[in-house]
Amino acid sequence: MARMKFLCDSERCIECNGCVTACKNEHEVPWGVNRRRVVTLDDGVPGERSISVACMHCTDAPCAAVCPVDCFYTTDDGIVLHDKDLCIGCGYCFYACPFGAPQYPQKEAFGVRGKMDKCTFCAGGPQGKDNSEEERKKYGRNRIAEGKLPLCAEMCSTKALLAGDGDMVADIYRERVLKRSGRPQTWGWETAYQEDV
């Protein structure tokens, strides 16, 4: 079965932050919490690259592996979701996640963080019926239940950010790379091990 995946094409991302704004607007994400963010490498230098990062809905999610109360579950097609009623806000998932996806809405004395919040692939959470008021308040809008894909990707003006069936996403990216006649320049052997290796 195909899995739902995000992919950001660094050759196309223009750092417009449209995805970040779309996400915040769609889910009414509180101030200080960013479910998605755009990271720029070598900002201001010729050849700079940007990528849009959020929860990558890992196949073997480290957040779920370290959660002491097992509040994570994965849908059939690989969307990693969590139950905020079970979450104790310990922050282990934040330390485990390589993408910095888990966010905490409160910053108070004595390390009180509040319940963890993260990208849901626009699939809401386990609260009541799909797209109920409670679900929307806790997890944001459930676009998947409406037959829609994540708004961040659907809003992307350059189609740098793709979200959907992993096989279809991979096909599109493969075609793009072939058209560019080579491999993407940001990631690769030369970047990781220097050009002279």
Partner: peptide
């Protein structure tokens, strides 16, 4: 996982 089941 012992939370609420997701209708989705």
């Amino acid at each position: 996982y012992k939370g609420e089941s997701d209708p989705l």
